[in-house]
Amino acid sequence: MTRIDTAISDIDVLDRLAAGVSPIHRLDPRAKLIVTVLFLLTVVSYRKYEVAELTPLFLYLAVLLALGRVPVLVIARYLLLACPFAVLVAVFNPLIDRQIIAQLGPLAVSGGWMSFVSILIRFVLTVSAVLLLLACTGYVTVCAALDKLGVPRLLIMQFLMLYRFIFILADEASRMLRAHSLRSPDGRGTSLRVWGSLAGNLLLRAYDRGVRVHTAMLARGFDGKFRPLPGFHWSIADSLFVVGSSAFLILVRHGQLATRMGRWALELSA
């Protein structure tokens, strides 16, 4: 499979999940969007050496994963594939920050290692939360929710049109690439000259398609303004979800749950 096909099938996987049915799927997308943003803000608001207190946040992911019926493997695959710029940068922390800030029994832990682990946890938490939002809501619905929350409509329409045409353009591109690779059996990549005319032709076709789509839109009374997308129904369940999740996040953020739990366990064992 070429990269294009892989990309499309990745989008497809999340789209199919989003078409499922579950209590999480039924929630108002605005509620899910708000909670996801709150979750992300909570994650990144921790200090850089925080490790233990981040862990209760996995509870949220676990609940969503379970209720939303999202396979863990899908998320895990994304986590592995996601361009780990964060991890790349994090690797330097243990090398640079060697101050010992914690003593775990005989093991002295440097600040660098703490912040390195912290970044890894943040990475897993943030990426999973976004993927879960998408897998339980769907791209189009997320866009509609953004529309209702006041994001400029032109931008929303751009989001939707882009999504629509990615499939068509990716298909055209992969057909062109296939035709190219069938006639260049030894070549691994495309040379700049070939790339230029391959991509150039793709661009011209895309442009012509844009003109045709424009005509089709005009023919159906388009005047440069988009009418509002269909609305959603905010129910008590949605309010409960937002309030409950917020309470949970505040509790986790300020409740020192992990430390308390640890102390309690130590006292018990002592």
């Binding site: 791209y139 189009v140 866009c143 939707l160 049109m161 999504y163 629509r164 045409f165 068509i168 398609r209 045709r212 789509v213 005509t215 089709a216 839109m217 023919a219 159906r220 009374g221 388009f222 005047d223 009418r227 997308l229 269909p230």
Partner: peptide
């Protein structure tokens, strides 16, 4: 309003993310 045109390539005609929204595009306008 009175002349409805169906173009040659349906991919050009279907530009909204779902079938329902696409069919609603004209009436909304």
């Amino acid at each position: 309003r009175s002349v409805g045109t169906v173009f040659q390539d349906p991919n050009d005609q279907l530009f909204m993310p779902t079938v329902g929204e696409d069919v609603a595009f004209g009436p909304l306008n």
